[in-house]
Design a protein around this nucleic acid. Sequence first.
DNA 1: CTGAGATCCTGTCTGC
DNA 2: TGCAGACAGGATCTCA
Length: 269
Amino acid sequence: MPELPEVETTVRAINKFENSTLKKVIIHNRNLRWKVDKKVTSLTKNKLIHKISRRAKYILIYLDDYCLMIHLGMSGKLRIQNRQDNYFKKHDHAEFIFEDEKIIFNDTRRFGSIHLSKDPANHRLIKDLGIEPLSNSFNKSYLVDICKKSNLSIKKLIMDQKNIVGVGNIYASESLFLARINPNRLSRDLSLKDCENLVKSIKKILKYAIKKGGTTLKDFFSADGSEGYFSLELNVYGRDSMQCKDCDNKITKTIIGQRATYLCSSCQS
DNA sequence: CTGAGATCCTGTCTGC
DNA sequence: TGCAGACAGGATCTCA
């Protein structure tokens, strides 16, 4: 589920806990992508939350001294629940308890993770990440530059978090469709115009998805914990053998870097 | 250094 | 209906 727009939407949903006191954190299952450090429980008791933000696909919750880092992995999600509502779902691994409410971390596949860091920007999982796609530094000249240096297909390149963060498998296919670029092409073979189009497409699709995420926010975090879903108007992803929305051709599915990749071979060259 | 492939985990869907 | 196998929105690690 979580690519940049979903993480951003999640951050906006829990933003209301800024300036609230985190009473305590309870870890039910420490065996996530990395074993959750026991300090996550001991060092976060009764701490004021100063800020909640996002870096790449990490949710950053700044406390007095430390920062809680949460990655949702493949299947992770946060939901807000009344503190006294003591129902649980399968794969609820952690609870962040506040005065009246609590945030629950649920992750079926346990590819997500929870860390504590004094200096998240220099945390080993964050320090080498690439630039934010919605920032001004992600522009045509930046993309041209990294494209020239790489031997990867353009899809792999934009999904590599060392280059650009936040673009996952869905938005990679979708933005390449919008830019009319075949995902199999080597990044070094892209023209300047291709790069310009791709930058615009990535920004456009991410912004649009965030906007859509916002509209389903209420649903996603409804009090009964029902898991709404982010509605996306996908052009190619998951539309194998269906008709392209722009031409008469059929969408095809291929595998790039072990990941499903969807394209219209007629629109994208 | 780069890039390809295996790997962590659970649930769901497809086909025999 | 049962069961094996493929596959799923991520990203690190190992190895050539």
